[in-house]
Design a binder for these strands. Structure first.
Lengths: 217, 217
DNA sequence: CGTAAGCCGTACAGCAGTGTACGACTTATG
DNA sequence: CATAAGTCGTACACTGCTGTACGGCTTACG
């Protein structure tokens, strides 16, 4: 939103902050240490905000081993930083899920998907909380939807093959997937569920919930 | 909890704020208008915080038609107010759920329970968010657990009668109950689910998830 | 090896919220 | 109807956070 006008009035472009926020990629004009700092900030912010969602810019800067002013030179506002961190996490998640084999038997594919997903959700639980505090909900949902696409396509396939139920809408089943995983994450955080037992419980529950209802009774 | 020391150093007791916070009951020394104000504050705070979880004391006071100072004279801090509101909501919920007939066929009882529960959850979604911002998590859980007792006892009964599955722990099934309802509430808020369809989806999902797994592959 | 890009700390301005103090006014209640 | 309980607005002190400005120093990079 605020980069748009900057690009217009700065014909040289890329002087300060255009597109090279992420560590990788070809930001030619940026000095190496600047790029390193941006990475350090993003990483530190991700970890810190996942612990304390209300951490201030001051604290983020300290955690990244960087001055607060430098932090502001890279991210114009708290919201901007939060958005960048959120984007980064979702990209990470997307990369992790891309490796999951979703072919073959749907229940087993679902189990694999759960096994790869739930940890990410658990770790970025509080970060989502932080995002909800100051990011427009539309933006959050947008990021989320992209990650849930894989879930949705798997469910669709299961429905076509009659492995999964078709009496409830696909979008609802996606919601159930998401909700149960989040519920498990909360339980773990509360110390009422161990990390080891979680994936099996989640998978067993989802498979029952997704199975076609038996016509009996 | 935080009134404890006040009672000690004020032998007269009941002068300002001891136990008569709620509208009903026998707070002899309190003037009638004071009691009315406390009620108005609690009601307004509940409604306002359910819309904007970050509403300030100023805004709460205005919504209650009361001066900010008066608000502070009844609730010493924001946290104290929030706790009172939270307690009130849970008490309301408890009262509503007490009317639900939990006897007889477990699936039907579960359906009735869902039908009475989910609206309350949906309406106080954001209030829970507010509570998580400044109430110790232990306190929140304590309130929650009391409300979930009914769910738990119903599930236990279903397990004894082999209507519900016993291969997953009871506490986990309670979590699933809670999570699915919350998920539905979020979907409604996002405009992706209508109020009319919600209860059926929730019930159908939970019944499948709670049903004993069929030994047939 | 010079220069510009980038870093740093400090300092300042602004804002918003929390709690508290005070004095005057209003109203239940006996 | 007198009095104590309660309310009201205004004002103040304090805290913590955001975002910006400035000048000096370090360092990457050609």
């Amino acid at each position: 939103m605020l980069d748009g006008s900057d690009d217009m009035e700065d014909p040289v472009a890329g002087t300060k902050a255009a597109d090279g926020k992420d560590q990788a990629g070809g930001s030619r004009g940026r000095r190496a240490d600047a790029q390193r700092n941006v990475s350090a900030i993003l990483e530190a912010a991700q970890e810190l905000l996942s612990t304390d969602p209300t951490a201030s810019m001051q604290e983020v800067a300290r955690a990244a081993g960087v001055g607060r002013v430098t932090l502001y030179s890279h991210f114009g506002s708290r919201t901007e930083l939060l958005d960048a961190v959120f984007t980064r996490v979702m990209a990470e998640a997307d990369r992790a899920l891309a490796d999951v084999d979703l072919t073959g038997d749907e229940p087993q594919a679902l189990a694999r998907l759960v096994r790869s997903s739930w940890r990410i959700v658990q770790q970025s639980r509080l970060l989502l909380f932080a995002a909800q505090l100051e990011l427009p909900q539309g933006q959050i949902r947008e990021h989320h939807d992209r990650a849930l696409e894989r879930v949705e396509s798997l469910i669709r396939r299961g429905r076509r093959n009659r492995t999964f139920r078709t009496d409830l809408p696909t979008s609802w089943l996606v919601t159930v997937f998401y909700s149960v995983i989040h519920g498990a994450a909360d339980e773990i955080n509360a110390g009422r569920l161990t990390v080891e037992r979680a994936p099996n419980l989640i998978t067993a529950t989802l498979l029952s919930a997704f199975a076609p209802p038996v016509p009996a009774t």
